[in-house]
Design a protein around this nucleic acid. Structure first.
Length: 350
DNA sequence: AATGATACTCGGC
DNA sequence: TTACGGCCGAGTATCATT
């Protein structure tokens, strides 16, 4: 059986615990961009705030219009702390499940025996509550997709165990956008083809699906439409790239301002690389223009790199290249390192 | 034509 | 109508190599 463990309103729940004053209040965890005092968006909000229409991605300024100031706490995200809590929960899960893959900072997929699965799920939920003091929702089903949709349906503080029939019923009758992996764009395209429930995707021809969504996604949609929910945990792989992105004080096309910001972000990303003992072979620059579209430019090197000085010219070239082909002002910039190679300790080949 | 590497966009959280 | 972060991996397009 597959298990999906999903922390409820994770960042906001952690902040609730952290600040005694927060009891009973609306907690809005925010990403402040620094452009103006209230520029930025909502990262996570607790259920009290959700009832008022505050949601992830909402501009902070809009959230402030919806929340009564006396009952609301606006707090900046503290990712480092949340990551520590996440590590603690990870250990709780790993001591209890046979196979575990952490899917994000607040989600885990696991696999364990069919026998005693409901009890195991309850044990996990209680352990996370007792040892970390946090509530989560857990779904258990014969497929990972079923487990994910079960946890999401049971939210918050829920536990839902499904058998084959229950899983098929839940997934088949679901609205297409409830399926993890089907976002706004895919849902819109499916609706244009006449499918609104998952089971109605089964009526579409595989050829149409592949033509519209590409080989991989098309085949996958066809499968779930027909009720085939295979696809296991997958391998747990280390992180494959690291990026840092930030918002400029003002939009600009000045390459010096852009490069200065990139360098600031670069040193942060480099610290991560150093800590993880990684070199990299791919360098990318991310640009978000004033129309809020994202663009990327990247280069790969034959040999792994590690010191920043050696990429000075490459950064400049990527920025110039972008400015030459895009007329918009730049609002946010980022840097990305990928294609890692392990560094240090290990004896390398040859 | 097949395979592999790289470049880039999309979208989930 | 405005307002609008910071990550990450998956997937696909494109190019190089055989």
């Amino acid at each position: 059986m597959y298990f999906h463990i999903d922390m409820d309103y994770f960042f906001a729940q952690i902040e609730e615990k952290r600040h005694p004053i927060a009891k009973g209040k609306i907690i809005v965890v925010c990403v402040y961009s620094g452009r103006t005092p209230d520029s930025g968006v909502v990262s996570t909000v607790n259920y009290a705030g959700r009832q008022l229409g505050i949601h992830s991605g909402l501009p902070i300024i809009q959230a402030k219009k919806l929340a009564p100031p006396a009952d609301t706490l606006f707090l900046p995200v503290d990712k480092e702390y949340y990551a520590q809590v996440s590590g603690y929960i990870d250990a709780i899960i790993r001591t209890r499940c046979k196979r575990v893959v952490q899917a994000s900072i607040d989600e885990w997929n696991a696999e364990d025996d069919d026998e005693g699965a409901p009890e195991k799920a309850k044990e996990l939920k209680d352990a996370i509550k007792d040892e970390a003091g946090l509530v989560c929702s857990i779904g258990v089903a014969p497929s990972l997709l079923g487990a994910k949709m079960a946890s999401s349906k049971s939210k918050p503080d829920g536990l839902l165990v499904l058998d084959r029939a229950g899983e098929r019923k839940l997934i088949g009758a679901s609205d297409i956008e409830k399926v993890p992996g089907i976002g706004g764009k895919t849902a819109e395209a499916l609706r244009a083809l006449g499918a609104d429930k998952v089971e109605s995707i089964g009526k579409l021809s595989p050829i149409t699906l592949v033509e519209t969504f590409g080989r991989k996604t098309g085949a996958w949609l066809h499968d779930i439409g027909k009720g085939d929910y295979d696809g296991g945990l997958g391998e747990e792989r280390g992180q494959i790239e690291v990026s840092r992105i930030g918002t400029l004080k003002e939009k600009t096309r000045d390459p010096y301002i852009i490069l200065a910001k990139i360098e600031e972000l670069e040193s942060e990303a480099k610290e991560w690389l150093m800590g993880m003992k990684k070199s990299y072979k791919t360098l990318g620059i991310i640009f978000v223009t004033d129309d809020l579209r994202t663009h990327t430019k990247s280069v790969s090197f034959r040999n792994p790199r590690i010191w920043s000085e050696e990429i000075t010219k490459d950064k400049e070239a990527l920025v110039q290249e972008f400015l030459a082909e895009n007329a918009h002002d730049v609002r946010r910039v980022g840097i990305r390192f990928g294609n890692f190679m392990d560094l240090g300790g290990q004896t390398t080949l040859f």
